[in-house]
């Protein structure tokens, strides 16, 4: 009777605990999100960013190729002409409105691929949850990189 209990109950438990003990000696593979965040793979495609050149000018020229390439049709671009008084991008043209509907976006990265100036890039910020639907329309101001700090 005791022999049976030892064989069918205690032994398997100990076998299992042995594995646990063995694993306990290894380093942890989970991280304490949200306090700790893991470095994501280099090709991660999450939140879009409109990049700037080092001198602070926007890379986006408002060409709307991203909107053309977008399979979810979630990008809206309206462009206008730069003047010497109000210059946003290096060339003649800049985006006066640039909006992405994040609810519709499927993060395929075609916009990034279509962009001739490398202005729209999908970076690693994945915490995109929000409470209201209108807040998921990301405007140009939200998407633009902050201005580089002048030394």
């Amino acid at each position: 009777m005791i022999g049976e209990i030892a064989r069918d109950v205690v032994r398997p438990i100990l076998t299992g605990l042995k594995l646990t003990a063995k694993r306990l000696r290894r380093s942890k593979i989970t991280v304490g999100y949200p306090e700790v965040k893991r470095e994501l793979p280099p090709r991660t495609r999450w939140r879009h960013v409109l990049a700037r050149y080092e001198n602070g000018l926007e890379k986006c020229i408002g060409c709307s190729l991203c909107a053309g390439a977008c399979p979810a049709k979630c990008i809206y671009v309206e462009s206008a002409e730069n003047t010497d008084e109000a210059r946003f991008s290096p060339g003649e043209r800049y985006a006066v409105r640039y909006e992405i509907n994040m609810l519709r976006c499927i993060f395929c990265g075609y916009c990034q691929e279509a962009c001739p100036t490398g202005a729209i890039v999908l970076r690693k910020d994945f915490e995109l949850a929000d409470y209201d639907r209108p807040d998921f329309i990301y405007t140009k101001e939200m998407l633009l990189e902050p201005l580089p700090i002048r030394q």
Binding site: C63, G68, S79, E81
Partner: peptide, 8 residues
């Protein structure tokens, strides 16, 4: 001028 692209 710069109002839209044909696919828009």
């Amino acid at each position: 001028r710069f109002r839209a692209r044909p696919w828009d």
